[in-house]
Protein backbone atom coordinates (compact mmCIF):
# COMPACT_ATOMS: atom_id res chain seq x y z
CA UNK A 1 0.00 0.00 0.00
CA UNK A 2 1.59 3.20 -1.14
CA UNK A 3 1.04 6.61 0.38
CA UNK A 4 -1.71 7.53 -2.12
CA UNK A 5 -3.78 4.52 -1.22
CA UNK A 6 -3.20 5.01 2.48
CA UNK A 7 -4.48 8.60 2.26
CA UNK A 8 -7.41 7.45 0.16
CA UNK A 9 -8.54 4.87 2.69
CA UNK A 10 -7.99 7.23 5.59
CA UNK A 11 -10.16 9.91 3.92
CA UNK A 12 -12.81 7.35 3.03
CA UNK A 13 -13.03 6.09 6.58
CA UNK A 14 -13.20 9.67 7.83
CA UNK A 15 -15.95 10.60 5.36
CA UNK A 16 -18.14 7.60 6.14
CA UNK A 17 -17.48 7.78 9.88
CA UNK A 18 -18.33 11.44 10.21
CA UNK A 19 -21.32 11.09 7.87
CA UNK A 20 -22.65 8.44 10.26
CA UNK A 21 -21.89 10.83 13.09
CA UNK A 22 -24.11 13.46 11.45
CA UNK A 23 -27.19 11.29 11.54
CA UNK A 24 -26.48 9.43 14.78
CA UNK A 25 -25.52 12.25 17.14
CA UNK A 26 -28.35 13.59 19.27
CA UNK A 27 -27.07 17.15 19.55
CA UNK A 28 -27.61 19.24 16.37
CA UNK A 29 -24.39 21.19 16.98
CA UNK A 30 -22.40 17.96 16.95
CA UNK A 31 -24.18 16.99 13.74
CA UNK A 32 -23.07 20.20 12.06
CA UNK A 33 -19.49 19.75 13.25
CA UNK A 34 -19.49 16.18 11.92
CA UNK A 35 -20.81 17.52 8.61
CA UNK A 36 -17.87 19.93 8.41
CA UNK A 37 -15.52 16.99 8.96
CA UNK A 38 -17.29 15.13 6.13
CA UNK A 39 -16.80 18.07 3.80
CA UNK A 40 -13.10 18.24 4.63
CA UNK A 41 -12.72 14.52 3.92
CA UNK A 42 -14.48 14.89 0.56
CA UNK A 43 -12.30 17.87 -0.29
CA UNK A 44 -9.33 15.63 0.39
CA UNK A 45 -10.71 13.18 -2.17
CA UNK A 46 -11.02 15.97 -4.70
CA UNK A 47 -7.36 16.85 -4.20
CA UNK A 48 -6.41 13.21 -4.71
CA UNK A 49 -8.29 13.37 -8.02
CA UNK A 50 -6.32 16.48 -8.98
CA UNK A 51 -9.38 18.72 -8.78
CA UNK A 52 -7.94 21.51 -6.68
CA UNK A 53 -10.47 24.15 -7.60
CA UNK A 54 -13.38 21.95 -6.56
CA UNK A 55 -11.63 21.11 -3.29
CA UNK A 56 -11.11 24.76 -2.39
CA UNK A 57 -14.63 25.77 -3.42
CA UNK A 58 -16.03 22.91 -1.38
CA UNK A 59 -14.22 24.14 1.72
CA UNK A 60 -14.97 27.83 1.20
CA UNK A 61 -18.61 27.50 0.25
CA UNK A 62 -19.83 24.43 2.11
CA UNK A 63 -17.58 24.04 5.11
CA UNK A 64 -17.26 27.81 5.42
CA UNK A 65 -20.30 29.79 4.47
CA UNK A 66 -23.15 27.30 4.56
CA UNK A 67 -22.09 25.59 7.75
CA UNK A 68 -21.77 28.93 9.53
CA UNK A 69 -25.35 29.65 8.44
CA UNK A 70 -26.41 26.26 9.79
CA UNK A 71 -24.82 26.97 13.14
CA UNK A 72 -26.41 30.41 13.28
CA UNK A 73 -29.85 28.98 12.61
CA UNK A 74 -29.44 26.26 15.21
CA UNK A 75 -28.23 28.71 17.83
CA UNK A 76 -30.84 31.38 17.03
CA UNK A 77 -33.68 28.88 17.14
CA UNK A 78 -32.20 27.28 20.24
CA UNK A 79 -32.38 23.81 18.77
CA UNK A 80 -29.44 22.41 20.70
CA UNK A 81 -31.77 21.08 23.37
CA UNK A 82 -33.06 17.62 22.59
CA UNK A 83 -36.64 18.54 21.72
CA UNK A 84 -37.15 16.34 18.71
CA UNK A 85 -40.42 14.41 19.09
CA UNK A 86 -39.96 10.68 19.32
CA UNK A 87 -41.18 8.75 16.31
CA UNK A 88 -43.24 5.66 16.98
CA UNK A 89 -41.63 2.23 16.70
CA UNK A 90 -43.74 1.35 13.67
CA UNK A 91 -42.58 4.39 11.69
CA UNK A 92 -38.97 3.68 12.59
CA UNK A 93 -39.35 0.08 11.53
CA UNK A 94 -41.00 1.03 8.21
CA UNK A 95 -38.21 3.53 7.55
CA UNK A 96 -35.50 0.98 8.21
CA UNK A 97 -37.18 -1.62 5.97
CA UNK A 98 -37.75 0.69 3.02
CA UNK A 99 -34.32 2.30 3.30
CA UNK A 100 -32.73 -1.13 3.56
CA UNK A 101 -34.55 -2.34 0.45
CA UNK A 102 -33.33 0.64 -1.57
CA UNK A 103 -29.80 0.11 -0.31
CA UNK A 104 -29.90 -3.57 -1.20
CA UNK A 105 -31.30 -2.87 -4.67
CA UNK A 106 -28.69 -0.30 -5.54
CA UNK A 107 -25.96 -2.48 -4.09
CA UNK A 108 -27.15 -5.42 -6.19
CA UNK A 109 -27.34 -3.25 -9.27
CA UNK A 110 -23.90 -1.74 -8.83
CA UNK A 111 -22.16 -4.95 -7.71
CA UNK A 112 -21.13 -6.06 -11.19
CA UNK A 113 -20.46 -2.58 -12.47
CA UNK A 114 -16.87 -3.30 -13.33
CA UNK A 115 -17.89 -6.07 -15.69
CA UNK A 116 -20.31 -3.84 -17.57
CA UNK A 117 -17.55 -1.65 -18.91
CA UNK A 118 -18.03 1.59 -17.07
CA UNK A 119 -15.92 4.36 -18.47
CA UNK A 120 -13.26 5.11 -15.90
CA UNK A 121 -11.68 8.49 -16.18
CA UNK A 122 -8.23 8.60 -14.69
CA UNK A 123 -6.95 11.68 -12.97
CA UNK A 124 -6.31 14.35 -15.57
CA UNK A 125 -5.50 18.01 -15.52
CA UNK A 126 -9.13 18.98 -16.12
CA UNK A 127 -9.61 19.89 -12.47
CA UNK A 128 -6.92 22.56 -12.56
CA UNK A 129 -8.25 26.06 -12.44
CA UNK A 130 -6.96 27.08 -15.86
CA UNK A 131 -8.48 24.12 -17.70
CA UNK A 132 -11.68 24.35 -15.74
CA UNK A 133 -12.08 28.00 -16.70
CA UNK A 134 -11.47 27.21 -20.35
CA UNK A 135 -14.08 24.45 -20.34
CA UNK A 136 -16.56 26.55 -18.46
CA UNK A 137 -16.32 29.54 -20.76
CA UNK A 138 -16.07 27.60 -24.01
CA UNK A 139 -18.15 24.43 -23.87
CA UNK A 140 -20.45 25.26 -21.00
CA UNK A 141 -20.88 28.98 -21.44
CA UNK A 142 -24.61 28.74 -22.10
CA UNK A 143 -25.55 26.92 -18.89
CA UNK A 144 -23.22 29.28 -17.07
CA UNK A 145 -24.97 32.35 -18.46
CA UNK A 146 -28.50 31.02 -18.15
CA UNK A 147 -28.01 30.20 -14.49
CA UNK A 148 -28.02 33.96 -13.95
CA UNK A 149 -31.79 33.77 -14.51
CA UNK A 150 -31.94 31.19 -11.75
CA UNK A 151 -30.03 33.38 -9.32
CA UNK A 152 -32.05 36.43 -10.26
CA UNK A 153 -35.29 34.63 -9.49
CA UNK A 154 -33.83 33.36 -6.22
CA UNK A 155 -32.90 36.93 -5.28
CA UNK A 156 -36.38 38.18 -6.13
CA UNK A 157 -37.71 35.35 -4.00
CA UNK A 158 -35.59 36.33 -1.02
CA UNK A 159 -36.91 39.87 -1.36
CA UNK A 160 -40.56 38.85 -1.78
CA UNK A 161 -40.44 36.38 1.11
CA UNK A 162 -38.28 38.51 3.37
CA UNK A 163 -40.19 41.81 3.31
CA UNK A 164 -42.53 42.32 6.19
CA UNK A 165 -46.28 41.99 5.86
CA UNK A 166 -48.64 41.65 8.77
CA UNK A 167 -49.79 38.13 9.52
CA UNK A 168 -53.49 37.37 9.87
CA UNK A 169 -54.38 33.78 10.66
CA UNK A 170 -56.66 32.39 8.00
CA UNK A 171 -60.15 31.45 9.05
CA UNK A 172 -60.35 28.10 7.22
Amino acid sequence: MDLFEAIFWFLTAMAIGSALGVILSRNPINSVLFLIATFFAISGHYILMNAQFLAIVNIIVYAGAIMVLFLFVIMLMNLNADVEPQKSRLVQFAGIISGGILFLLILAALRDMKAAGVIEKTATDIGLMKNLGKTLFQNYVFPFEISSVLFLSAMIGAMVIGKKETLVIDKN
Binding site: Y140, P143, I146, G157, V160, I161, L167
Partner: peptide, 26 residues
Protein backbone atom coordinates in the same frame (compact mmCIF):
# COMPACT_ATOMS: atom_id res chain seq x y z
CA UNK B 1 -27.13 20.22 -17.70
CA UNK B 2 -29.79 22.23 -19.49
CA UNK B 3 -32.44 19.82 -18.21
CA UNK B 4 -31.27 20.43 -14.67
CA UNK B 5 -31.03 24.22 -15.02
CA UNK B 6 -34.41 24.31 -16.77
CA UNK B 7 -36.06 22.34 -13.98
CA UNK B 8 -34.51 24.59 -11.37
CA UNK B 9 -35.53 27.81 -13.16
CA UNK B 10 -39.01 26.33 -13.25
CA UNK B 11 -39.07 25.23 -9.61
CA UNK B 12 -37.54 28.04 -7.59
CA UNK B 13 -39.99 30.76 -8.73
CA UNK B 14 -42.79 28.31 -7.98
CA UNK B 15 -41.67 27.89 -4.37
CA UNK B 16 -41.84 31.68 -4.04
CA UNK B 17 -45.18 32.05 -5.81
CA UNK B 18 -46.66 29.35 -3.57
CA UNK B 19 -45.74 31.38 -0.50
CA UNK B 20 -46.52 34.82 -1.90
CA UNK B 21 -49.66 35.29 0.18
CA UNK B 22 -47.75 35.83 3.38
CA UNK B 23 -50.76 36.81 5.48
CA UNK B 24 -52.09 33.30 5.01
CA UNK B 25 -50.52 30.50 7.03
CA UNK B 26 -51.63 27.84 4.56
Amino acid sequence: LMLFIGIEILSIPQYILAGSDKRNLK
